[in-house]
């Protein structure tokens, strides 16, 4: 079991570290960093499913017999570029949130929202 599944377990550990950062940290930028850690865990998991012992990169050449599977690689290749594009959107949102709230801490943003709502309630 250990000899054949160690890669998966280590990658699960990596994903869980990322998930913990996403859930437990209040800072939005830290959350985004955690998200990319989690993402990398998933990417490596996909790629490791396509790997064959003694295989080679799926670029066909005369003197190579075994190749790793190209399909997970295609999926992950596009996923990486899409991942950075979504990271950029997240960062842009964080910048806008900082500009209107003066903070990127989730708790403080929620607190200010609650304060605003109270003031509105008192006024009407």
């Amino acid at each position: 079991m250990i000899a054949t599944h160690y890669v998966y377990w280590l990658l699960f550990a990596l994903m869980m570290i990322g998930l913990y950062v996403v859930i437990s940290h209040g800072n939005m930028l830290k959350k985004l960093i955690g998200l990319s850690l989690f993402q990398v865990g998933v990417f490596l998991f996909f790629i490791s499913l396509g790997k064959v012992d003694g295989g080679s990169a799926p670029i066909v050449s005369e003197d190579v017999e075994t190749y790793s599977h190209p399909l997970p690689q295609v999926l992950i290749l596009t996923a990486i570029v899409v991942g950075v594009a979504t990271l950029a959107v997240g960062l842009a949102l964080a910048v806008r949130i900082f500009e209107s709230y003066g903070t990127v801490e989730e708790d403080q943003v929620l607190l200010r929202d609650a304060d605003d709502r109270e003031q509105d309630g008192g006024a009407s």
Partner: peptide, 15 residues
């Protein structure tokens, strides 16, 4: 190492 050379290319440039 996992034979995904195209992915390594992208990851290095993007990451």
């Amino acid at each position: 190492l996992l034979d995904a050379v195209d992915v390594a290319f992208t990851e290095a440039a993007v990451g």
